[in-house]
Design a protein around this nucleic acid. Structure first.
Length: 507
RNA sequence: CGGGACGUGGCUCAGUCUGGUAGAGCACAGCGUUCGGGACGCUGGGGUCGCAAGUUCAAAUCUUGCCGUCCCGACCA
């Protein structure tokens, strides 16, 4: 251990990936655990990322005609019961409100629930049913369609096992709900939103994703078809980053969303729903963070640059601060991909700790400014995608003028690295022995990072899918759209297959 | 809900076996010296030892119950 490089986060990814993940969140000040089981407090540095995600996606959604609205947190139990598959999928994880009042307890100190509700209310695990009820009243003619609605909300799913950002009992998300006159139009919308998610993940989160279709067993409860984008984390596990569902007429029937067609017949509408959640932030961490903390892609970063004034003598302070203030103003007035550059100024005199704080927080650019720089009208710049001591002096005007390019370069670099990870650990496997070998860690006690995305043939039977899951905890992430037709034999049973699907361990 | 580990200042932990009334390092605050750097010295603040019962003259330490956290499974964005 004597030559071991000191890292800001311990353990490192290689040493203990799950623990590393927790420590990165702590070190980067994104979030903390809450007193409520399975819930989290998203701190300002983490919430700013979510705000940026909301900002960009809102623009993308609205450009396709989607409007935002808000529906109730509470859903009458009877609504949830309307769609059979939906109930079955969500019943186990619903939080239920049964009372509307608290009273002093008679047998002890404290309060007890009183005033039972005539009908229990479910805290929304998703909003198809209650939005469907509204849609049913909003639609009577084909002229009322399509309805294109999105809401930003919190939802609750009572999970057995939680992980910060990746799976919490309460999480923040966006859920889009649309209703259409035709199957084709609803299908088109389902694909359109998946494309938006894929583009967003790639261009903003610097996460390369694979677009594909879920198998029936992984489908959204009540959906006719579920499309998804899957990304590979640094431990080679898959993370579902977003989903888009074609709901057919299932929910329209359940919620009575009917309309009169041009031919004067009564029809059920065709609906879709699609969402991404704060889970994306977990994906961001596991895609880009290193052993010194998180690494934020500039386009979605809480802030793009921190200015750190350095003064050795007291009389340096005023001229350094003046220079820093003017630089802050100059940078803040510039735009980076339609948003103002967000600048932090950290003038705490706490030595190297200050620098490492910002490394751990993953800010793309760290700029040191001292008397020497001012004399040369320069700045001293470090990039988060390079080593911590790799710093270069730049002329102030070059830095200010070139900051957009510099940020773009970092953004691109992160995407390239993530893409490299994806490609390096994607393989085609055609025999069962290799498949089992690929997904079996050498150290079963404490599994090392292993596996990846295995592109294999699958006969389409749920039995083969379940068998593999049983044996290896490996699931079919999706049938990728880009997977071309190819004859082959199922990796498990040898039965005929016409294209490959992706097997992987998943979050 | 099963299997394992663990709950002691903000963090990491020692102390628990062999009960005697709470410690270290880091972090925090003040002062000074440093400093393009994860610095150093001095001084100081902060803990009913997860909760509750029990045993005892005495419990962080022993007993029982409960709660919570993390890891591994089953369930899921």
């Amino acid at each position: 251990m004597k030559n071991k490089v000191k890292t800001a986060v311990t353990p490192t990814r290689v040493e203990d990936y799950p623990e590393w993940y927790q420590q990165v969140i702590k070190a980067s000040d994104l979030a903390e655990r809450s007193p409520v089981r399975g819930c989290m407090v998203i701190k300002p540095w983490g919430y700013a990322i979510w705000e940026n995600i909301m900002d960009v996606l809102n623009g993308m959604f609205k450009a396709t005609g989607v409007k935002n609205a808000y529906f109730p947190l509470f859903i009458p139990l009877s609504f949830l019961e309307k769609e059979a598959a939906h109930v079955e999928g969500f019943a186990k994880e619903c939080a239920v409100v049964t009372h509307h009042r608290l009273e002093p307890a008679t047998d002890r100190e404290g309060l007890v629930p009183a005033g039972p509700l005539t009908e229990p209310l479910v805290v929304r695990p998703t909003s198809e049913t209650i939005i469907g009820e509204s849609f049913s009243r909003w639609v009577s003619s084909y002229r009322d369609l399509p309805i294109l609605i999105n809401q930003w909300a919190n939802v609750v799913r009572w999970e057995m096992r939680t992980r910060m950002f990746l799976r919490t009992s309460e999480f923040l998300w966006q859920e889009g709900h649309t209703a259409h006159a035709t199957r084709e139009e609803a299908l088109e919308r389902t694909h359109m939103m998946l494309e938006i998610y894929a583009g967003f993940a790639r261009e903003y989160l610097a996460m390369p994703v694979i677009k594909g279709r879920k198998t029936p067993s992984e489908r959204f409860p009540g959906a006719e078809d579920t499309l998804c984008i899957e990304s590979m984390m640094q431990d080679r596990k898959a993370l579902q980053v977003g989903t888009s569902h074609f709901l057919g007429q299932n929910f329209a029937r359940a919620s009575q969303i009917r309309f009169q067609s041009p031919q004067e017949t009564e029809e059920y509408a065709w609906t879709t729903s699609w969402g991404v959640s704060t889970r994306m932030i977990g994906g961001l961490i596991m895609s880009h963070a290193d052993d010194d903390g998180i690494v934020l892609p500039p386009k979605i970063a809480s802030a793009q640059v921190v200015l750190m004034p350095i003064f050795r003598k007291p009389d340096d302070k005023s001229r350094v601060m003046e220079y820093v203030k003017s630089l802050e103003k100059e940078l803040s007035s510039r735009f980076y991909h339609h948003r103002r550059i967000c600048v932090e100024v950290d003038s705490r005199d706490i030595g190297g700790t200050r620098n490492w704080d910002w490394i751990k927080k993953g800010i793309p650019l760290r700029v040191e400014i001292g008397p020497r720089d001012i004399d040369e009208n320069a700045v001293f710049v470090a990039r988060r995608d390079r080593k911590h001591n790799d710093k270069t002096s730049m002329k102030r005007e070059d830095f200010v003028g070139g900051i957009v390019n510099l940020l773009d370069e970092i953004q691109q670099n992160l995407l390239d690295r993530a893409a490299e990870n994806l490609h390096a650990h994607s393989v085609k496997i055609d025999d069962a022995a290799s498949f089992y070998d690929y997904f079996t860690p050498k150290n079963s006690e404490k599994p090392e990072i292993h596996g990846g995305f295995a592109h294999c043939h699958w006969c389409g039977s749920a039995g083969c899918e379940a068998g593999i899951k049983e044996d290896l905890s490996v699931t079919i992430r999706c049938a990728p759209f880009e997977s071309e037709a190819e004859e082959g034999k199922c990796i498990r049973c040898g039965g005929p297959s016409h294209s490959r699907v992706i097997f992987a361990k998943a979050y």
